[in-house]
């Protein structure tokens, strides 16, 4: 299977702090790639560096064979990468419809994709004309994900989508990601290991700005000692 995103020795500093010290991993086309790690390990910084929101070392990120390190965030997004940040990045003063319209290239919806979104997240159709600040946390997360898939993308970067959500919403979100992953590659940062295990095909563990483990999720899920060592999970 082709490599969609390749990261080589990516170093990122924020101000005077060196956060990533040489991150290396490949994301294959299709399915869900999960990036695991403890708090402060550098997972969010990795996603933000890929997106160009923080500038990583030159020539360290290749997407569809093209070096994207140093490109502007807008140009990276136009290449087909969508980003769902940890805080969801919802525009609270805009309606659900306006939030989604902004994510379209020409300001028009593809009705087939819109119907698919309504099926995945029925609440968005119900609150279509409501301002987004009035939505619940789960509904905001649905809107953030819907915004990432309202048009075809090759890669979606999702940062901790289950954080603070009720178990029923987490389950619905899992179903949605499974369906989205049939047509789009997802790079998922997640602290909820059970959720990550249920979705991931490939995975990496990041610690202190380095990738300390790479492999398949099936192998990692079967090795409780490794989970305990790298993530501090008890059997």
């Amino acid at each position: 299977m082709n490599v969609l995103l390749s990261i080589r020795d990516m170093k990122t500093s924020i101000g005077q702090y060196h956060v990533l010290h040489g991150v290396t991993f490949d994301v294959r086309e299709g399915g869900v790639f999960v990036l695991l790690g403890r708090n402060g390990a550098g997972k969010t910084t990795t996603l933000r560096s890929i997106m160009g929101l923080w500038q990583p070392s030159p020539a360290s990120i290749t997407f569809k064979g093209q070096n994207i390190a140093g490109m502007t965030t807008a140009d990276i997004a136009r290449l087909g990468i969508a980003y769902v940040p940890e805080n969801m990045g919802i525009f609270g003063g805009l309606t659900v419809q306006e939030n989604l319209i902004l994510a379209t290239t020409k300001g028009r919806f593809d009705q087939i994709r819109l119907r698919r979104i309504y099926e995945l997240f029925p609440a968005l159709e119900q609150f279509w004309s409501k301002q987004a600040w009035a939505l619940s946390g789960g509904q905001k997360q649905m809107l953030a994900v819907a915004r990432a898939i309202i048009e075809p993308r090759d890669l979606i970067l999702v940062d901790e989508p289950t954080k603070g959500l009720a178990p029923s919403i987490v389950a619905a979100m899992g179903e949605a990601f499974r369906e989205i992953a049939l047509t789009t590659t997802i790079l998922l940062v997640e602290q909820n290991f059970n959720f990550a295990r249920s979705l991931g095909r490939d995975m990496a563990v990041i610690d202190d700005g380095h990738v300390v483990h790479r492999g398949t999720m099936a192998d990692f899920a079967a090795d409780s000692d490794l989970q305990g060592k790298l993530l501090g999970l008890s059997a």
């Binding site: 997106m51 929101l53 502007t72 965030t73 807008a74 997004a77 136009r78 969508a82 980003y83 940040p85 990045g89 525009f91 609270g92 003063g93 805009l94 306006e98 902004l102 994510a103 290239t105 915004r147």
Partner: peptide, 16 residues
């Protein structure tokens, strides 16, 4: 209106 709320997200949607 979106940019007033969250500039980074506007850029992440592909706008300069």
């Amino acid at each position: 209106r979106a940019g007033v709320e969250n500039r980074e997200m506007v850029e992440s949607l592909g706008f300069k």
